[in-house]
Design a protein around this nucleic acid. Structure first.
Length: 567
RNA sequence: CGGGAAGUAGCACAACUUGGCAGUGCACGUGGUUUGGGACCAUGAGGUUGCAGGUUCAAAUCCUGUCUUCCCGACCA
């Protein structure tokens, strides 16, 4: 493409509205533009990147014999009623009515429709296994879109589904997909980790996430450097690291703690470490109130609590509810003398002589021990902390932030049973199909790459997905020799089937260099003052130095570089 | 949904307190001088000040409502 007379613009200054490096760079380089909160247009340059990512995904999907199709976005609400997922999506589903007052939604994910499609193809065990996928927009009414393309309300997703006759088959299909995902993210040049995750509203047997490691990720990736253990914080098991204390248990003692409500305040007031304190949190779980006790420096993991109680909803109790059960104020809540069931964290079970609220304004108890109150159970209900022990090998755990760019689920028979997707096996028994589903957020991949690969000048695209692999900059477009040489090169590259950009705008050289750096083109050819000697300059985006090269050799040299860097 | 902030040219912002011709920088048009890492001079164009109502001789400015956007939190397959 020649830049003169084409749709191309860049923005020199930072965009106030964009809160992430990737969002800012993508907007500034004219690749995307926000139209509403969490809704973006992909402009020509950004669209090319998107297509390059899609193509890599398509190639790898096709290699494992997944077949592409396209589902509608506008879906009758009945479809989600059939699997009982209307409530689990709740407000995050966009819903609308047609002129006859019939309810529709904009599809947030497509397990149901793929199951319905599969009904047409499945009668006998001979029809299995097979695999389908699509690349299509998904709609989720996010309460708070943010970080450019990372949390948005309309987004492009590749979703694949596998159909097998039994768990064994599912394991094989899942494994194929898992390996394909590893290839895809490697080819995209993303630094990622694979972690165990919660199955959430998808349900099923297993969920693993592909997390791009970045500073702005919304997920916390827990991993061990000594073994291959890795997990999303939300499901990472806590191992008790301390031995049972041999300290002698003392009698509990009421102490004044005026205006000290938070852990930090109490800790400061009494000059005791937060780890000597125990937090009592009143939670409403499936409508019933519970008191959850964790060490002062720990955090409740709500997902663990839900699983522990086999419950569906969990939220912190309101101030009024807390006052009612404790007859005191938030900030002074403790386990002694309240009449709701108490669950303590495993870590608390090992503590002696700790500090808790006294259920009396401006008072706490010190030297409290677990025999001072009754609890219904002790369990793992907290998040692991950095430095806790690895559940697999016992070494120290480390944390990193991650962006979930892909997720794979072993669904099992949840959807096939709900939608009656069954087949006759060899012995003529009717059995449910075993399903898996597998998603890749394409916009997130794009953002994650920019998040990981940029410098003060702009984006540094990997060769595979750059909007153009090569840019020719004509230093002086009013110099006939330069312009002709550049056009000649441009045509040569086109004939060699290399996607190339020619910056033939009547701008100063610095403007063009800066723009090419901002939009992240991996290779730059500068046609300048030595054009009349048939010498041009070759420079890689990530390198400082350029090399001079004969205009007759530059195509071969560039082909070599592309060959080297294409994965 | 709770708390906070903000909507003025394509972008970033000023003018608002104390009502009186809607401005600056970048970007854009024209002319000129420049020309290898975001040039300079001159001269232009670009606005229903988010929207609706109210107060006033007069509203970007004061008041009411509403919409939108952003931040913190809640939520998040």
């Amino acid at each position: 493409m020649k830049l003169k007379n084409s749709f191309f613009y860049t923005i020199r200054e930072n965009i106030k509205d964009e809160d992430s490096v990737s969002g800012n760079l993508l907007v500034r380089s004219g690749m995307i533009k926000k139209t509403s909160a969490g809704i973006y247009m992909y402009l020509p340059l950004g669209f090319k990147v998107l297509k390059n990512i899609e193509n890599i995904i398509r190639e790898e999907m096709n290699k494992i014999n997944s077949q592409e199709l396209l589902m509608p976005s506008l879906i009758s609400k009945d479809v989600y009623e059939s699997s009982n997922r209307l409530s689990s999506f709740g407000d995050s589903m966009f819903s609308l009515k047609d002129r006859f007052d019939k309810d529709y939604v904009l599809g947030p994910t497509h397990e149901e429709l793929f199951t319905i499609a599969a009904l047409n193809n499945v009668r006998s065990f001979k029809d299995l296994p097979f695999s389908l996928y699509q690349i299509q927009n998904k709609y989720r009414d996010e309460a708070r879109p943010r970080y450019g393309l990372i949390r948005v309300r309309e987004f492009l997703m590749k979703d694949a589904y596998t159909f097998d006759k039994d768990l064994n088959g599912l394991d094989i299909s899942y494994n194929d997909m898992y390996n394909a995902y590893k290839k895809i993210f490697t080819r995209l040049g993303i630094n990622y980790k694979i972690v165990k995750a919660d199955t959430g509203s998808m349900g099923g047997l297993l969920s693993e996430e592909f997390q791009a490691i970045t500073d702005i990720g919304e997920d916390t990736v827990v991993f061990c450097e000594s073994c291959d253990y890795s997990s999303n914080l939300e499901v990472c098991e806590s191992i008790i690291s301390e031995k049972e204390s041999t300290e002698k248990k003392l009698e509990k003692d009421l102490i004044e703690t005026i205006d000290a409500k938070t852990i930090d305040e109490v800790s400061e007031y009494l000059n005791e470490a937060p780890s000597k304190l125990v937090k009592t949190l009143i939670y409403k779980i499936d409508g019933k109130l519970y008191a959850l006790l964790i060490k002062g420096d720990a955090q409740i993991n709500e997902i663990k609590v839900l699983k522990l109680l086999n419950a569906k909803t969990i939220e912190l109790a309101s101030e009024a509810e807390v006052k009612k059960v404790t007859r005191s104020e938030i900030g002074f809540v403790g386990p002694i003398g309240i009449d709701v069931p108490i669950i303590i964290d495993n870590e608390v079970a090992n503590m002696v002589n700790f500090i808790v609220g006294a259920n009396k304004k401006d008072y706490h108890y010190k030297n409290v021990n677990i025999d001072d109150f009754t609890y219904i159970m002790a369990a793992d209900i907290r998040n692991v902390k950095e430095g806790d022990l690895c559940p697999k090998c016992g070494c120290e755990l480390k944390f990193k932030k991650g962006i979930e760019i892909g997720n794979t689920f072993k669904l099992g028979t949840k959807y096939s049973e709900a939608l009656n997707l069954r087949y006759n096996d060899e012995d003529n028994n009717l059995k449910p199909v075993w399903m898996g589903c597998y998603g890749i957020g394409i916009g997130r991949c794009l953002s994650a790459i920019v998040e990981q690969k940029n410098d003060e000048k702009g984006i540094i695209w990997p060769m595979n997905i750059a909007p153009y692999k090569v840019a020719i900059v004509v230093v002086d477009v009013n110099n006939e020799t330069q312009l002709q040489a550049a056009n000649h090169l441009y045509n040569t590259f086109k004939e060699a089937n290399i996607d190339i950009l020619l910056d033939d705008r009547n701008e100063r050289a610095g403007v063009k260099f800066n723009d090419m750096d901002l939009i992240g083109i991996p290779i730059r050819i500068t046609v300048g003052r030595k054009a009349d000697e048939h010498i041009v300059e070759l420079k890689k985006r990530e390198e400082e130095e350029f090399t001079e090269i004969s205009i007759f050799d530059v195509l071969y040299k560039v082909q070599d570089i592309i060959e080297e860097e294409n994965i």
